[in-house]
């Protein structure tokens, strides 16, 4: 279980998060929504231990973020907003690269299985030759190598075609249903959010998203 208790954050003088609290059960899918600059990425990076909150506490499975940072990181799969891949290496080389750095050893077959789960079979193509959708899939696949239990994704489906989008959503759904993985992700696609998420957190002052989600009957925390 992930407990966020009264977390606030500001960049120098600019206040971005103000007393955010939420409890998330294992296996839930949570959507983070809000206008540009509302603080979604900031919140996700705090959950990923990459930023420290100015105020408040966070615990994951009773481990305090403050004192158990490296143990918590082993549990986190982080999918950055930017595509973070070696463009000059092939799909498989990218997987092998991070497998070698990873806490968990995986065979080449196991790595291929992760890729096949998301319909990505061009193992030997260079990343720079891949379509946007395939890059997004690989971006996600790498984050799964060390079998995380908490998956944090920043706009994992932005700018890709509907088919790839559905394939990625299927993976997230599968991970939460079958692997009991907690999935927290940001998106501007409200259809996707309402279909996939169990709950949402709305960031920012604009009432637009809140009203829209309420109309759809989506729980907001």
């Amino acid at each position: 279980m992930l407990k966020v208790d009264n977390v606030s954050f500001s960049y120098r003088t600019k206040k971005v998060l103000d007393n955010v609290s939420i409890e998330i059960e294992d296996g839930e899918i949570i959507g983070l929504v809000g206008e540009n600059g509302a603080g979604k990425t900031t919140f996700l990076n705090i959950l990923a231990t990459l930023l420290k909150p100015r105020k408040g506490t966070i615990t994951y499975n009773d481990m305090k973020y403050k004192s158990k940072k490296s143990a918590i990181r082993k549990q986190i799969g982080y999918v950055p907003q930017d595509i973070a891949l070696w463009e000059d290496l092939t799909v498989m080389e990218n997987m092998l690269f991070f497998e070698k750095l990873s806490w968990v050893k995986k065979s080449e077959k196991e790595l291929k299985d992760i890729l096949l789960d998301m319909q990505l079979d061009r193992f030997d193509s260079k990343v720079k030759e891949l379509s946007g959708g395939m890059k997004r899939k690989l971006n996600l696949a790498i984050s799964l190598i060390h079998d995380p239990s908490l998956l944090l994704l920043d706009e994992p489906t932005v700018g890709i075609d509907l088919k790839s989008k559905i394939e990625i959503n299927d993976i997230l759904d599968y991970m939460s249903e079958e692997e009991n993985m907690t999935v927290i992700y940001t998106s501007h696609d409200m259809d996707e959010i309402t279909q996939l998420c169990d709950r949402t957190i709305v960031f920012g002052q604009d009432p637009f998203y809140r009203e829209l989600l309420e109309r759809e009957g989506m729980p907001i925390s």
């Binding site: 990923a48 231990t49 990459l50 990181r73 986190i76 799969g77 982080y78 950055p80 930017d82 595509i83 973070a84 891949l85 070696w86 991070f98 750095l101 990873s102 806490w103 790498i142 984050s143 060390h146 995380p148």
Partner: peptide
């Protein structure tokens, strides 16, 4: 490289 931000979630 952007890819370096992944190092936080590796052994190194």
């Amino acid at each position: 490289q952007k890819v370096m931000q992944r190092l936080a979630f590796t052994r190194y």
